Amino acid sequence: MTESPFDLAEAAAAHLRNLSPTIDVALVLGSGWSAGADQLGELVAETPLEEVPGFAKPAVAGHGGQLRVVRTAGGRTAAVFTGRTHFYEGRGVAPVVHGVRTAAAWGAKQLVLTNGCGGLNPEWAPGTVVLIKDHINLTGATPLVGATFVDLSEAYSKRLRDLAHTVDASLPEGVYVQFHGPQYETPAEVRMAGILGGDLVGMSTALETIAAREAGLEVLGLSLVTNAAAGMSEDHLDHAEVLQAGKDAGPRLASLLSVVVAAL
């Protein structure tokens, strides 16, 4: 009989308790955010994710494959996932949200999800960090199975967004739209996302947030605008340029993330 996703998460958490008996908060670092891992606090332990039950090597250049346990400036224990599984890898939804469920089984109460994305607002130049206030899931998938009714009225915690604003009052807020990928969105799809109420487009985060809310985790979402979404400028999209935008923004992201996490 196939092991359930929740049993697999429990097995992963049991394995990780060798690094730390429990954790308070978990972070998933997306494109451009990995530079912040070194500034989150004192490194307690580290392990390759592929050695943890249910995880695999990262499939995308620019995504790390380590799990770090750090002690934050606020004295809390944080698990930092420097990589994630994307839905477009074709492994199904359960592997996409395995990190979230593992963090919950390990004891986390808050989850910080970060990503690199395309921006629809012309005022948000590459390098702008946007707080996610809501999302639109266009993947056609969900991590929930059967009659599992989860309230998403406040998928992204207002309390945590307010806390982030105490760290940086200038942070804008926006609605994140998750597409399936791996192809970038067409200009027509970007226009559709805007008509639906979206401000940001990408290929992660929404499915993880749904699983996090099912597990009772409080979610803070942070998007780095790495490029104008397709059709919003004359430039064509290139993954190398996306990675470079994240690298250029690295020092600011590291500083912002360390201060926000210390305040949690």
Rank of each mutant, 00 (worst) to 15 (best):
M1T: 15
E3Q: 15
L8E: 05
L8F: 05
E10R: 15
E10T: 15
E10V: 15
E10F: 11
A11H: 13
R17C: 06
N18M: 14
L19F: 05
I23L: 03
D24Y: 09
A26L: 05
G30M: 03
G30W: 02
S31F: 05
G32R: 02
G36Y: 04
A37C: 12
E42M: 15
E42R: 15
V44D: 02
E51N: 15
G54L: 02
F55L: 05
A56C: 11
K57M: 13
A59F: 08
A61Q: 14
A61K: 14
A61V: 15
G64K: 07
G65K: 07
Q66F: 07
Q66L: 14
Q66G: 08
G74N: 06
R76E: 07
R76K: 15
A79T: 13
V80C: 06
T82W: 00
G83I: 12
R84F: 05
R84S: 01
T85R: 04
T85L: 05
H86Q: 00
F87T: 04
V93E: 00
A94T: 04
V96D: 01
V97H: 00
V97C: 02
R101V: 04
R101G: 03
W106D: 00
G107A: 03
K109P: 06
K109H: 12
L111A: 05
V112A: 02
V112N: 01
L113Q: 01
T114H: 03
T114M: 05
T114V: 12
G116F: 01
G119W: 03
G119I: 09
N121A: 12
W124N: 01
A125V: 15
P126R: 03
V130I: 14
V130M: 05
V130L: 08
L131M: 10
I132L: 03
K133C: 12
I136P: 01
T142A: 08
L144F: 09
G146Y: 04
T148V: 14
D151C: 13
L152K: 02
E154I: 14
L160A: 05
R161A: 10
D162G: 13
D162I: 14
L163F: 12
V167N: 04
P172R: 04
P172L: 10
Y176D: 02
F179T: 04
F179V: 08
H180R: 14
P182D: 03
Q183E: 12
Y184C: 06
E185Y: 10
E185R: 07
E185Q: 09
T186C: 07
A188D: 02
E189T: 13
V190S: 02
A193T: 11
A193F: 08
A193P: 08
L196F: 11
L196N: 06
G198R: 03
G202A: 06
M203C: 10
L207S: 02
E208R: 06
E208K: 06
E208F: 08
I210F: 09
I210A: 04
A211Q: 01
G216N: 06
V219I: 13
L222D: 01
L224K: 06
N227W: 03
N227M: 09
A228Q: 07
A228M: 11
A228Y: 10
A230D: 00
M232A: 06
S233H: 09
D235S: 13
D235I: 12
H236K: 15
L237Q: 04
D238L: 14
L243T: 11
G246V: 11
G250R: 09
P251F: 07
P251Q: 07
L253M: 08
L253C: 09
L256W: 01
L256Y: 03
V259C: 09
V261R: 02
A263P: 10
L264H: 11
L264N: 11
